[in-house]
Design a protein around this nucleic acid. Structure first.
Lengths: 160, 160
DNA sequence: GCTCAAGTTCATTTTAGATTGAACGATAGT
DNA sequence: ACTATCGTTCAATCTAAAATGAACTTGAGC
């Protein structure tokens, strides 16, 4: 049961996976601590408590708490009933569709919504129709709508 | 010819557009000065020189130079023959497909490539096939491939 | 070939935002 | 009810990345 990998190799692998997720989430604009937390859960068989992660990643309790909160709202992490008291254990949700769905819901949609408001703000100021400036505002809105349409398609593609 | 918008209104609109693009590029992980440069070109009829932009955005020459360099490699900006000496004038490329294409080429592909290398590094360490750990490494690779497949589809959708 | 304007580079400074850690609730077990 | 453990919050600190600005390179025009 312990011959899947040697302890040293597991350490190396874990380090590489942590790096992998740190880098990936940074590209997505999330703090790297979030990537480390998710990465550790991703490459660990057993569910882990906050304290486990704090120790393993030598990060602050506060940071871990915030990072887990984010992972929870993203739906990237599942709470597992810990039998011992009220301590909570976590495991990674490794379904790509959940991850993408959560990211779109929490990180992309809000930006598209605020973009919509800003564009509406521009329209309100009475720029002459069929002027250069109205053309540009219209283009912005076309882009925004396009983005809104692409997201569900993306999700559909990644469902499987 | 000047009744499309009043000067004051144009000022307000410009400010809003600058904000719009600052925020947007920040989401994409680019410095906000890049958004301001692009935004100014986007909402300006005439091609602008570096100095024009430095003045209008009150940003440093160095910053503007770097920002324009990035916009050039992204293909988000076109150089226009200035008749006066060797001064270069720029205008925005406002084709969504160019913008998306440039972003994918310059910002996303490189990350996918480096992810590929990292995953290959993990494979090399001789984890037992059909172990938990190999499953996870395989999953990473599946995700990576999926991302690589989605990009051209995305580009195709946004072409029109 | 000199000069001056245009543009780039890069060491320094600034800023945004991530991380820390101590103080504070909250709850389970006794 | 008391205590010990668990988790959260948030002001203070740290850090990575962006912006500045002065020194430098380049080339056009005289």
């Amino acid at each position: 049961m312990s011959s899947e990998v040697s302890v040293e190799e597991l350490d190396v692998l874990t380090t590489q996976v942590l790096e992998f997720f740190s880098d990936t989430v940074k590209v997505l604009g999330l703090p790297k601590s979030v990537g480390e937390l998710y990465g550790l859960l991703f490459i660990t068989k057993e569910a882990l408590s906050l304290d486990d992660m704090v120790e393993r990643l030598s990060m602050s309790k506060g940071g871990a708490s915030q990072g887990l909160k984010m992972l929870r709202t993203l739906g990237a992490v599942r709470e597992v009933e810990g039998l011992s008291g009220r301590k909570v254990f976590y495991e990674a949700d490794v379904e790509l569709k959940s991850l993408v769905g959560g990211f779109i819901r929490e990180e992309i949609r809000p930006h598209l919504d605020s973009a919509k408001l800003k564009i509406e703000g521009m329209r309100v100021m009475g720029i002459k129709e069929d002027s250069f400036y109205m053309d540009r505002v219209n283009k912005l809105d076309k882009w925004r709508k396009r983005a809104g349409l692409v997201l569900p398609i993306l999700q559909k593609i990644l469902r499987s």
